[in-house]
Design a binder for these strands. Structure first.
Lengths: 342, 342
DNA sequence: CTGAAAGCGCTTACAG
DNA sequence: CTGAAAGCGCTTACAG
């Protein structure tokens, strides 16, 4: 068979190194992978040559023989929360990627229509041996992806949760802590009717937030309504209009995303409701958006990059066969800005 | 050697199919790949069995034998423009991904610190045979990635441009057309001092915009200044403050990104400059952000998803050995909103 | 401590 | 029209 020599520079293989070092390919492989059973001298010589010729493993060959692709997968449903306009996603991706890169692991990204298609993507990746593990974001109530990864024995870590996570380790967001912080802040400012424009109840995180929100309110002796939305700015605006024009009129509204908070702020301004004079506005997620609008928005800040990185690190450990327990909720901090009178 | 049977369900191989069909592995491969040299009957039988057992190619094996990874790469520099807060990136990614998926091609994503690290990522991907081609976004003036892909003979398509693109095909954004549209709109409204808060001059797109901006102004007999920034909201705010407090005070400011436009709007409001009364504000990129703030922002709209998809399609064709010429600039449309008095 | 060899799951000339 | 075989570039028991 003719040598399929594509154009461009030649990529050295372990055979080339073996020849130059005068050893077998096996020895080269041992040296490159840090396996025992090689004299220090030989090992050093091999590594020097590999370095010199600029050898990099052919990932396909390694994957085929070692049954490891050296890649992790992230599939996300497009329309809803994730790929929306929230900086949250970019930061999360950035954190995940940094951690994977540091471990020489590639990230495969697939953007699909809905959570069912996410499940199909997982199955295909598994069948094609494309990935060694996956990250699951935006956990749904009764999420179909959980039984899939369990059935396939595909290492997986859930970013967010808790919910019906089966045996899959998860990294809870700051849902419970964040909502608590926000309610306590508003109650301390004297608010007694605190409404919330929430995301979709199909998400596990929304359920957690709603539950904790109600608990925190009743603990403080305050009251509040919850309106669910699909995270779009239109839905956020509509919900705000509804809340501001229907008794009991709130003195504070909490939004599940920054873009909805900004949309709500605009509605309040259009209705002639002074912010923060007559209405306090709080965004759950913090982002540059909250800083840039006027009045600037009070929000719940946390380090999303670090959060993504920890989840990715857990996945890497899981793939390496380590036990990965479920984690504590990430800490979050309330940043008081003009929209709550701060 | 023991069969390395991982846990979980078993993944069928062509050997399994060959056995069940009573043919050789070679015939199975031919059938699966639609190659000639097989009776229609046999082919159909093989395909039926493959379907039945749910066969999917082991990508590593296919990559190793066919020298094709079935993946494309996208490396991006983190801090600056791309992964910033602009919806542009999410939409672009979404469009790229949709097109690649439709062609059964995976997307590898890497987020790095700067353009040099992007170049290193390209080299590593190439050396590891991780990708069949790459997409280059955020083209710089004298971009170091261009000579790298040329040296490696790595199929590449530039998203954006033109600039120093060598022989690499590029998909120009709507820089020239967009700036022209914006200037014409403002001039038609009677503005004669139109300033611009631009991005970094290190980007090819900024250079195009600045050149065309000046041409359009002088063609219309109008005047205007350009301040370069690093795309951060702080820089956008500072630039706005500077322009609004230094003669000749502009009656309109054009921003190179939506987040800077919003930041600029806030500065104008703080300085007591009524928008659109005394100052018109225009954002180059359109997004939900522009709709949500008050006053809503006039912007230059275009279908970023379609744009990303076309670039991805070109890359796929390039990888398949087709000739891909450089494309026409994408059409863009001006959406007049409250910030220009619309 | 080292080498020769089998195997991962495909593709693809080559011979019948 | 079909089969047997080599090869892609690695890893990894096994024998010396």
């Amino acid at each position: 068979m003719p040598r399929r020599q594509g154009p461009g520079p030649r990529r050295p293989t372990i055979a080339d190194i073996a020849e130059r070092a005068g050893v077998s390919k096996g020895s080269v492989s041992y040296a490159l992978n840090g396996n025992p059973g090689l004299s220090d001298h030989t090992r050093r010589r091999i590594l020097a040559i590999a370095e010199e010729v600029g050898w990099q493993p052919n990932r396909a060959a390694r994957a085929l023989s070692a049954s490891r692709s050296g890649a992790c997968g992230l599939a996300l449903a497009r329309p809803a929360r994730t790929l929306a306009y929230e900086p949250f996603f970019s930061k999360l991706l950035s954190g995940i990627e940094a951690e994977l890169s540091a471990n020489q692991i590639a990230l495969m990204l697939q953007i699909v229509e809905d959570v069912e298609a996410e499940g199909e993507a997982l199955r295909r990746w598994w069948a094609e041996r494309r990935v060694d593990g996956v990250l699951l974001v935006d956990l749904r109530v009764d999420d179909p992806r959980v039984p899939i990864v369990e059935e396939l024995h595909l290492p997986a870590v859930i970013v967010g949760g808790p919910g019906s996570t089966g045996n899959v380790p998860f990294f809870p967001g700051n849902d419970a802590g964040g909502v608590t912080r926000i309610v306590e802040h508003l109650v301390a400012l004297g608010h007694t009717q605190v409404d919330r424009v929430a995301g979709s109840p199909a998400f596990a995180s929304t359920q957690v937030r709603t539950r904790v929100f109600k608990q925190a309110l009743s603990r403080a002796g305050a009251r509040g309504r919850v309106v669910n939305t699909d995270y779009t700015s239109t839905a956020g605006a509509d919900a705000t209009r509804k809340l501001l024009t229907k008794e009991p009129v709130p003195t504070a509204i909490v939004y599940d995303s920054d873009i909805m908070a900004v949309a709500g702020l605009s509605v309040a301004q259009e209705l002639g409701v002074p912010v923060p004079g007559n209405l306090a506005v709080v965004s759950f997620d913090d982002s540059i958006l909250c800083e840039v609008v006027r009045p600037s928005l009070t929000a719940c800040a946390r380090d999303v990059e670090v959060y993504g990185a920890s989840a990715a690190r857990a996945l890497v450990r899981l793939i390496e066969g380590e036990d990965v327990g479920t984690q504590e909720e990430a800490p979050s901090e309330l940043v008081a800005r003009a929209s709550t009178g701060g």
